Simulated scan of single mutants.
Amino acid sequence: MSSPFGNSGTNSFGQSQPNSGTQSPPSFGGGFGQQPSQQGFETAPSAFGQQPAPAGGSSSPFGASTPDTSFERDTPPALAAPATGPWGFVSAATVAAFVGLICGVLAPVIGGSATDSGFRMFAIAGWVLSGIIAFVLVGVHKVVDNKRKSAACYLENSTHVALTRLALAVGAIGVVITAIEISLWVSKVF
């Protein structure tokens, strides 16, 4: 019987095949980039002309084998310590709120009456510390804290939450006291 490709003794790649009386179709076994098999479909090691898988590896149905790399697994990277909120901003906000409140309380005691310059200086300093500086620092703390929360590993600290709430409460009380003192000063002087 003659080959449909016109080569009775060779396959389509020009390789010689053993003559067994009947011609088998050429084998195109192996994966991409592998040499074609010299055996026909009947004598190939598997259905698609795969080469036997190496020891410890697995073989795909298209002839490519993947080596077993279980012994080459990378060790996981060292875990970083969990991030927490920034201590500096919340601590500074709490201190600023308390100092502002103390300035507001000391304004009538040390500064004298509402028309004295010491009263005015304590009231304005307390209002700036309790109102502006404390609240800006709480805002910066929240921005940095939210950035850290979006990191891979974050551990919320209840002390941060308590200090933030304390700074906001003391700052609000300090703002109310110093605002009343500033309004007293303005009403007496102007």
Rank of each mutant, 00 (worst) to 15 (best):
M1C: 13
S2I: 12
G6E: 03
S8F: 09
S8T: 10
S8C: 08
G9I: 11
G14E: 02
G14R: 03
G14M: 03
G14S: 02
Q15F: 12
S20I: 13
G21P: 01
G21F: 01
T22Y: 07
S24W: 15
P26C: 12
P26S: 14
S27D: 09
F28K: 05
G29F: 07
G29P: 02
G31C: 07
G33D: 02
Q35S: 10
Q35N: 10
Q35I: 09
P36H: 10
P36F: 11
S37A: 11
S37Q: 08
F41R: 13
T43A: 14
T43F: 11
S46W: 11
G49F: 01
A53R: 09
A53P: 08
P54R: 14
S59W: 05
P61G: 07
F62I: 09
G63P: 04
A64G: 13
S65N: 12
T66S: 15
P67F: 14
F71C: 10
E72C: 11
E72W: 10
T75L: 14
P77N: 14
A78F: 05
L79T: 15
A81M: 13
P82L: 10
P82Y: 07
G85F: 00
G85D: 05
P86Q: 05
W87T: 12
G88A: 01
G88M: 03
F89T: 07
V90P: 01
S91F: 10
S91P: 06
A93Q: 00
T94I: 12
T94F: 15
T94W: 14
A97G: 03
L101R: 07
I102T: 08
I102G: 05
L106M: 08
P108F: 05
P108T: 02
V109R: 11
G111Q: 00
G112L: 01
S113V: 08
A114W: 04
D116S: 12
S117I: 04
R120P: 06
F122T: 01
F122K: 00
A123T: 02
A125L: 14
L129R: 02
L129Q: 03
I132P: 10
I133Q: 03
I133C: 09
A134V: 00
V136E: 04
V136C: 06
V136K: 05
L137C: 01
H141K: 05
H141N: 09
V143R: 06
V144T: 11
D145R: 07
D145M: 06
D145N: 11
K147D: 13
R148M: 04
L155G: 06
N157I: 13
S158T: 14
H160P: 05
V161K: 14
V161I: 15
A162G: 07
L163D: 05
T164A: 10
L166W: 10
A167M: 02
L168M: 13
L168Y: 09
V170P: 00
V170W: 01
V170F: 03
I173A: 14
I173S: 07
G174R: 00
G174M: 04
V175C: 08
V175R: 00
V175N: 01
T178Q: 01
A179P: 11
V189W: 02
F190S: 12
F190R: 08
